[in-house]
């Protein structure tokens, strides 16, 4: 299991060819309490940088981008009734979607925990 981060303030926990994706604690603090989370349909294939989900605070909607090429496997169903879970536990129970990685070579272009910490410092 390897943990990666993106410049768009997402985290990606990779196990084999699949990954769990969420937003970082920093992003969750910036967005404030979420009121709605919508993940694209399971089976949707996306390129890195395309939107895979939308998270909404009271004030604004923000896209969640695919960190690498892949396919949406499932959204976190618990967020339908309790989107605020992303705000309270963004790197745990507030995960947003599961994702199948189709181009693992792109992972080397992502950040590790130290590089992400430096980015937001």
């Amino acid at each position: 299991m390897t943990l990666y981060f993106t410049k768009e303030h997402e985290w990606l926990r990779v196990e084999g060819e699949s990954a769990v994706v969420g937003i970082t604690k920093h992003a969750a603090e910036e967005l404030g309490e979420l009121v709605f989370v919508e993940v694209r349909d399971a089976g949707t294939e996306v390129k890195a940088g395309e939107s895979v989900a939308v998270v909404e605070s009271v004030k604004a909607a923000s896209d969640i981008y695919a960190p690498v090429d892949g396919e949406v496997l499932e959204g976190n169903a618990a967020l339908t009734d309790d989107p605020a879970r992303v705000s309270s536990d963004p790197e745990g129970e507030g995960w947003i979607l599961k994702f199948r990685i189709t181009n693992p070579d792109q992972l080397s272009g992502l950040l590790d925990a130290a590089a992400y910490a430096a980015l937001i410092a």
């Binding site: 404030g32 309490e33 009121v35 605070s57 009271v58 004030k59």
Partner: peptide, 10 residues
């Protein structure tokens, strides 16, 4: 100020 520590909802 957009919001304080408690956030917009609270």
């Amino acid at each position: 100020p957009l919001n304080y520590a408690d956030g917009i909802m609270a």
